[in-house]
Design a protein around this nucleic acid. Structure first.
Lengths: 226, 226
DNA sequence: ATTATCTATAGATCTATAGATAATGC
DNA sequence: ATTATCTATAGATCTATAGATAATGC
């Protein structure tokens, strides 16, 4: 007995698999348009007509590709999570960090996060915006965060003897919380209002690294960021 | 020549000044209901009917008091900003901190922020939620942030000789950014998903204080938080 | 022949008002 | 007499579909 397949690939995403080249182009255009609009105005303030118009498509075509607005959210999230998982798994691979000190690891991480935010700000902001509203996507986002969190945690804990803090586990927990917070704040503030953080990215990376190193009481990174 | 007054007090708030005791009760109930709903589901997902129902009132009555949904946002923001300005001005008064070290000031600030978040989480979260969507309210929120920022900055800069950092101004800027970020993150994470920050408020206050003190290279607070 | 796209629009949802009824306090 | 409240509903907005037309590739 075979389960009857609906016209939609998976039941969660509700995205129609395109069978023509033209179809895939349109679908990609719709996704890109939605991503930008979600990041700019938020999901609720974006109508299907907005998305279709910006993509140079039509409402009817939108519904040919996606079951409804939430289907685009899921699809966007898929793109986002897939990419993020790949880079995260790569980044936290222990082999990658043999011989590296805590300071080296943290500096590289902050630097990487800042650079990727600069390159594709809409992607991550749309991700955050979308995860904020939907419970299920929020859970998925949490899972991704947990993976990154655990990976970094392992890297740091493996070097616990370097740490000058009475409770190294707590210290590592705090560092991870702090990094997530300041990186997120910088991404969001930047997009909306002018704020009062360090103006240049270089200053931000340097001071963030300094802050966590001093907190953990580990020596600063050997060299400046490459 | 006198300007013709509309039935609405100010043109921005669009709130009708109640003239009966009953009226003021209803208006307060509507505000409270809106505050909770905004904090929970967000502004867009909240309908006028939702607000009226939770307040034990009616749609018609809502429109008797407020011109539209944005009027409630402005009114809520007024309550929020008025309260926040008072406590902020009080908190950053230089007289208050004579003889206090940098560590004392920062510890008290973090502690105060955490406690007030615990007491009225809906207030601040609704404030953040509302400021996020509306440009004008965002600007007003920024002004409040700037006041707090400047006040704390002055307090810290006045003690710059304590600071062990090559660029004390930059260091203070970073500390303020960091505090805003970690406090906000804790407030928001707490409300949504379980996260990976320090579990207890006491740990959070202690580690945050430790982090900024070590970063600035100033001695830790003299005593534990009262 | 099949798949993709478009225009037009029905249906659902929410906002905001009109008009009738009830409560207040001078 | 004035102010506040309620119910019912018109009007606006957005979602999602139907049905007709155009493009694709076997």
């Amino acid at each position: 007995m075979s389960v009857r397949k609906s016209r939609w690939t998976a039941d969660l995403g509700h995205v129609r698999p395109g069978q023509q080249t033209r179809s895939q182009r349109t679908q990609a255009a719709l996704l890109d348009a939605a991503e930008e609009l979600f990041a700019d105005r938020g999901v609720d303030a974006t109508t299907i007509a907005d998305i279709a118009e910006r993509a140079g498509s039509s409402v009817g075509s939108f519904y040919h590709h996606f079951r409804d607005k939430s289907a685009v959210q899921y699809a966007l999230f898929d793109r986002f999570v897939a990419e993020a998982e790949r880079t995260t798994l790569d980044a936290i691979a222990p082999e990658r960090w043999e011989g590296a000190s805590i300071a080296d690891i943290l500096q590289s991480y902050v630097q990487f996060a800042v650079i990727s935010d600069r390159e594709q700000p809409a992607v991550k902001r749309a991700g955050l915006e979308v995860a904020r509203t939907d419970t299920e996507l929020g859970a998925r986002f949490d899972k991704l965060s947990a993976m990154l969190d655990q990976g970094l945690r392992d890297l740091l804990i493996a070097r616990r003897s370097e740490i000058g803090h009475a409770d190294p586990e707590l210290a590592v927990t705090y560092v991870l919380h702090m990094l997530a917070a300041v990186l997120r704040a910088r991404l969001q503030y930047d997009s909306t209002h002018t704020r009062y953080g360090p103006r240049s990215d270089d200053d931000f990376v340097e001071e963030t690294t300094r802050a966590v190193c001093r907190y953990l009481d580990v020596p600063p990174p050997t060299g400046p960021p490459e």
